[in-house]
Design a protein around this nucleic acid. Structure first.
Lengths: 193, 193, 193, 193
DNA sequence: CATGAATGAGCTTTCATTCAT
DNA sequence: CATGAATGAAAGCTCATTCAT
């Protein structure tokens, strides 16, 4: 049971995040969540309309944060290659630093019912497009290769980020920063003309 | 209903592949599978011990095929960069050409119960290691960068392949070969010293 | 939300009447009632001991009113046929003029728990018996047929009144008075020897 | 538990009829039905898609039977007054002879979800209209009063039939035939010009 | 007076699997 | 070989009511 000072909704989000990250949304029973949070089902449904809402809440706060950081860095100063390197490293670092949330997002976001899934996809697409515009900026500036479409490159890179949830362990030898730098290096390397 | 000459087990595998690819293992009921295959539940349990067995069968045949091709190409003649380019393009092409199977593997393979999951992971690791040894061969030959560990590169690349199931559509503008070439180009690009 | 000057208990009764009439007692959640009344559950349980109490209050005031009017008219002057015609028309008119209350009574009164249901039945029986005594008075006076027991006639007539809630619409072409007259005419017609 | 040779679906319908008649659809749990039928919930959902389906099945067979009988008698030979008397008595007799089914229909038919409710209403309307056309036939023939609209008369009469479920007891002093004759007598009496 | 968080028991429905035929 | 009836455990969700503040 998750004890401590945290409020009931916070405890519920925490419990759900842990369990969804471990077993995937479909394999977690509401009963497990409330048991871990130390409350009853009624309490959960007092704060959240459904099990879906918990999932949405979890991935939503991560996605919002990452989108904000992407926009801040991408619109900042400096050569485009440096900015792309920075955003690539940043999304890896924030994913690893909020690893349970990230795993939930990568693994379970499309278990949402149609309506919520559409909203999630729209948010994700916004992120994708801002990232792609950075690649295109570099292509137009002549510093990135143009024989591979920017769209493909972005999907290529986000595949690697999503896959972190499958193999990376926060307790392993590579720190968040190291893995972020490696991934950004590989991305920038792959884009050289 | 899936008609045709196919045998009952084949029809069951076909139906399960289609449904698991679309909705994910957990969201498909055995009843749906047998309905689509045009048989009854009893028939399914006659040929397969459980729902898990269907899943194992589906990803297993793809993984086996890809492992064989990897080994054939990797052990073939030619400079290591060319061989790596070939295996990278090949795994993309075979995944796209067997897209439903690939989606099932990428998305649902870890829904298997512990015992079967271990077997799957072992097979997957074999593939990973053979691929990595190719990267290391290039590093030792001095044609690939060494500042990023080979292991990280391999995870990096396989992330992108797994992610295909999320965004790629066989009906879209990019053919299997094109996407394979782009992905292999990006991989090789990223490995330049 | 039901606004206006009305007191909290009045707003609660109003909200419950509307909702019970529409959906039936069992299909209305206490939360819906308090939402429509613009108060909280605590407020409701401050004024009413339970959801049952609201129901009892609603049908009770109508039944009391109808009983009083029945007694006043039945004990008044005039030939028995005229008095019966008047009470029959009157119960229809007052039911239609308080249509939501009447619907609640007709439809939901026997959802009450045993104890309260007994009280309700006793009140209803009093009404029934006074009505029947009027029929018997006419039979003894020789103006009503005697081949059908008075009891049956009264049930026969009250069935029609209860059924109003099922088909009658206050917005339709028939006014309360018209439908009251028609029903009383039919009743009197059916009683001719 | 309902024992005997009856098949499982029959036992389920029997149990549901008894319980719905007693307590109303909303107050009966599926668990109670299957307990009384001596099977498990899984068995019930093997035969019936939902709790609604049981309800539909129950009232449907009664309504179909009554509609057939109405049409047979109404279209038969004889003066219109006699035919109307016969159909009025018949609907009372069949309702009383299938009293549990009739109670379910009278009391619970509008607990159905929208889609099924529409179908039920259509069936009921067909019955109503055939009955009304008989009244109109008598009005045109000059044997029934015309100062009360036929539609009102039909609602008037069906109210009394529906109400039977509220007060009539099969164990009481009045037989099905007696109550049928009384009701038909009252209807015909009420229609005299 | 009034709030609203929390309870706990109950609800309908789903589903992989078994087994007598 | 194949059927399909039946199981039993679990799932997500609802709701009247209580109670500390």
């Amino acid at each position: 049971m998750l004890l401590g000072m945290a409020s009931v909704p916070e405890r519920l989000i925490g419990a759900a995040t842990r369990l969804f990250a471990d077993k995937g949304y479909d394999r977690v029973a509401v009963q497990e969540i409330v048991d871990l949070a130390g409350v009853t089902k009624g309490a959960m449904y007092h704060y959240f309309g459904s099990k879906d809402d918990l999932l949405q809440e979890i991935y939503g706060s991560l996605l919002r944060m990452q989108t904000e950081r992407l926009e801040a860095i991408a619109s900042g100063p400096g050569p485009v290659a440096e900015r792309l390197h920075a955003v690539a490293a940043d999304v890896v670092v924030t994913s690893v630093e909020n690893f349970d949330q990230a795993k939930v997002y990568f693994r379970s976001a499309d278990q949402l019912p149609e309506a919520k899934r559409r909203a999630m996809r729209a948010e994700r697409r916004r992120y994708h497009e801002r990232f792609r515009s950075l690649v295109e900026e570099g292509q137009e500036a002549g510093v990135f290769r143009t024989d591979v479409p920017a769209d493909v490159t972005v999907h290529f890179f986000f595949g690697t980020v999503h896959h972190l949830g499958t193999w990376y362990h926060t307790t392993g030898p590579l720190s968040a920063k190291e893995i972020g730098r490696h991934y950004a290096d590989l991305l920038l390397g792959s884009l050289r003309p």
